[in-house]
Design a protein around this nucleic acid. Structure first.
Lengths: 248, 248
DNA sequence: GTTCAATTGGTATCGCTGATATCGGCGGAA
DNA sequence: TTCCGCCGATATCAGCGATACCAATTGAAC
């Protein structure tokens, strides 16, 4: 490996700070082509040749720009995450810290639901934790938690709070995506979010349910195998119990 | 394609039910070799050639046994999960239902922590939800939740409860594995577990005595003042609840 | 005991993938 | 003008999943 020549010869891109826009431009074009390919045809469709073809460059150019395929994917993850974070605004001084926590959790979950392939790429494998995109998102989360701690809201350690927030969001997104499209209860997301809030902050849970719903669920679960009602009666009763059980 | 000859000639393995043990034996050997390779050298090391070499068979044999590589991975996932479930005992009639829920959650999380590569294989991608192994585990979880519902402990719908349990466990495992080995707080697992318990169950059961009669009595008591049913529906439901409550 | 159909072991091969080598040409500093 | 380093382009390599093909083997039916 030749040591960087003092005269800074020939190439202006030798120093990344003053790199000409052309390199960054093709870099961006390759990244966007990769994102497009990833979200339209799935992860298996992301091959170096397909990306190069879609971006209008040669296969070796990818390796000159990103090192290897993993470097490309990392750049893609960072790009997607940065774009998303930039599109939303983070309130630097929220008046309700807990509500700000909810908003942040919703934001990262929404990102996952909007970009399933990209999210899976970033968060499904346990290894990619050192990615810059991962760290950038982590930094924002860390700031939120710090403010919560400063406000005296935190029930647990800051690091533990971060891990809890992260784990619930990750579980929410991946489980949501794994469910069949017609069986994704919106209540799952809010339930997990409120479980997270209850585990992290001191805030009391808002609702202490005490209606017929619980008893209806119990009766519904105990319904099969009893003989006091006819089949037709059981069928109709089942429908009513469904309505009562869903009536929170 | 020749239609299956009526005389069931030649090969005893034509009917999978009476397949000779030799086929199942090599099948098992291939699966175990794959698991070993997966947990020792990571997922990328699991190639058809490496598996065939480790199991002492030829590469085409894998395709004859499992159809394709995805079939092999599915069989591996099912094998690992079945082995794990068989090693633990599920109490068919636990005395403390909520504690049983905790035990089940701990069990599935422990499985993930003990077999990171296998767990990631099974649960990281949202797609593999239709696998038999997935369904088998789901069935056990479903039974636990049903008992909770019958006991009146459930705060939410059964399906939602299942989703919450699943999501928290998945998030717990994947987040735990993504943390650096020296920064994995044990409190994360218990915190997530208790958050799950708080989100799914209520402190006091909605019905005191088990069975349809008790649930019917509880529902009958909570019936006035709710609006999900019409007056006529409430009237008929009232009659049925009377019959159910009297049916000890 | 012979026959025969289906499976299995074994080798070779196909198309594709990630990654690299190599070379000519372009462009900007010296 | 000279020259060094980047870029486009083609060819190529090893390895991958998957399949084709053929000989050897097996085991039930006759």
């Amino acid at each position: 490996m030749p040591s960087r020549s003092p005269g800074r010869s020939g190439n202006p891109a030798a120093d990344p700070d003053i790199a000409p826009p052309v390199r960054e431009q093709t870099r961006q074009r390759v990244i966007e082509a990769t994102v497009d390919l990833l979200e339209r045809e799935g992860r298996d469709a992301v091959t170096t040749r397909a990306v190069a073809d879609a971006a209008g460059v040669q296969p070796p150019a990818i390796y000159r720009l990103f090192g290897d395929k993993d470097g490309l994917l990392e750049a893609v993850a960072e790009h997607g995450f940065a774009t998303y974070l930039a599109s939303k605004r983070v309130d630097p001084d929220p008046k309700d810290l807990v509500e700000d926590l909810r908003a942040g959790w919703d934001l990262s979950v929404e990102f996952g639901l909007d970009h399933p392939a990209l999210y899976t790429l970033m968060y499904s494998e346990p290894t990619r934790s050192a990615s810059p995109a991962f760290q950038a998102g982590m930094q924002i989360l860390r700031g939120r938690v710090r403010r919560l701690a400063a406000g005296g809201w935190l029930r647990v350690d800051e690091d533990l709070a971060i891990a809890i927030i992260h784990a619930t969001a990750r579980g929410a997104v991946l489980t949501w995506l794994s469910l069949p499209e017609d069986g994704r209860p919106a209540a799952l997301l809010t339930a997990l979010r409120e479980a997270m809030v209850a585990a992290v902050t001191r805030q009391e849970p808002a609702v202490l349910d005490s209606g017929p719903a619980g008893a209806a669920r119990a009766l519904r679960a105990a319904l099969p195998g009893q003989t006091a009602l006819s089949g037709a009666e059981r069928h109709l009763l089942r429908e009513w119990l469904d309505r009562l059980a869903a009536d929170d």
